[in-house]
């Protein structure tokens, strides 16, 4: 029995392309609009096909002027024609948002990751309380779209500073209507609103928060004081750890004497396969244990879900489909 390589779906934008990283998409900037410090981009596929559906609250990682930044998707989420993001210009950040504001133009191409879901809606919730601060409204926008499509009860509390513009306000008002959107300006007003609303939510409600760190912590504190268990509180924290392509390292094959380079962004398994060193494998995600290889020397960097804590500390084997090396050279029993 042999398993043929996976067939990508013919019209899928995930089909192999010149994308820098495996699975990433090349999209074209089809539209740009700027309101104050917020620039909203519409990104479309190069072939005009619809883009992969995503779970509301998802974000994409964008390669922007040499940096990688995560931005929430704000638009329609079922086979959308475009991905839409809103970027706040941060003058003293890593430069990604400055590049998007100052250097990016309509018609240009961007390399973006597939959507990643880390802030999903809670289908079973009786009611969603969506709290956003400033640019934190972005993932909340797709939550609102989901709530409307699936007829779920929701309300939005949108906190903004006195002197700042309010990103996407017109669209927000259109999506929420008058009864489901509360604007709150300044800390005192926001705190008062939260203290009132969070004390009167029916059992079964959930709280989703996205905004600047201190604002999220303050909201969480108010909720906790009012008896909300942590399981009901969900915050959007972007994390790009799992996408970390890792440092390159050299692998020595003890039995054959060969040496291979494992570049950044290429898995050890892929490097071995490219060098025609066969390793049994199945899930290619670090869970099934099939690609386990014995380690003779060097410290593995374990990224799998298979090994026990003792097996990890022993450092005498690793899952080559996901794990890498802490040291420059790793010697394997191959």
């Amino acid at each position: 029995m042999t398993v043929a390589p996976a067939q990508p779906l013919a019209s899928s934008p995930l089909a192999p392309s010149a994308a820098v990283r495996e699975g990433w998409l090349i999209l074209r900037v089809a539209g740009v609009s700027t309101a104050g410090r917020v620039r909203t981009l519409r990104l479309v596929s190069l072939t005009g096909d619809t883009l992969p559906s995503f779970t509301p609250g998802s974000h994409i990682v964008v390669e922007a002027g040499g940096r990688t930044n995560a931005y929430s998707l704000t638009g329609d989420f079922l086979e959308p024609i475009a991905y839409e993001i809103s970027v706040l210009r941060i003058p003293d950040g890593n430069g990604g948002s400055r590049w998007i504001h100052d250097d990016l133009d309509v018609g240009q191409e961007l390399s973006v990751s597939p959507p990643r879901s880390a802030f999903p809606p809670v289908a079973s919730a009786q009611h969603h309380v969506l709290v956003a601060g400033g640019i934190g409204i972005t993932p909340i926008l797709s939550h609102i779209r989901a709530a409307r499509l699936y007829h779920r009860s929701f309300e939005v509390i949108y906190a903004h500073r006195h002197d700042a513009e309010v990103p996407r306000l017109r669209e927000l008002r259109a999506l929420c209507g008058p009864d489901r959107l509360e604007l709150a300006q300044g800390r005192a007003q926001v705190t008062a609103r939260l203290r009132k609303r969070l004390a009167e939510q029916p059992l079964g409600s959930v709280l989703l928060i996205c905004g600047p760190g201190p604002m999220m912590e303050a909201t969480e504190t108010i909720a906790t004081e009012l008896g909300w268990p942590s399981q009901r509180i969900h915050t959007e924290r972007f994390s790009t750890e799992a996408l970390d392509p890792g440092s390159p390292f050299t692998v020595k094959l003890a039995r054959s004497g060969r040496q291979l380079l494992v570049p950044s962004g290429v898995s050890l398994l892929e490097a071995l396969e490219a060098a025609e060193v066969p390793v049994p494998n199945l899930c290619r995600r670090g869970v099934c244990g099939e690609c386990r290889v014995a380690v003779k020397a060097g410290r593995p960097e374990h990224r799998d879900l298979f090994l026990s804590d003792e097996e990890r500390t022993a450092n005498d084997s690793l899952m080559c489909c996901v794990s890498r090396a802490h040291d420059a050279v790793l010697e394997l029993e191959l």
Binding site: M1, V3, A4, L9, R285, C288
Partner: peptide, 9 residues
Amino acid sequence: VEPARRPVI
């Protein structure tokens, strides 16, 4: 578990 959409001969 293994990736789907791979024909098995």
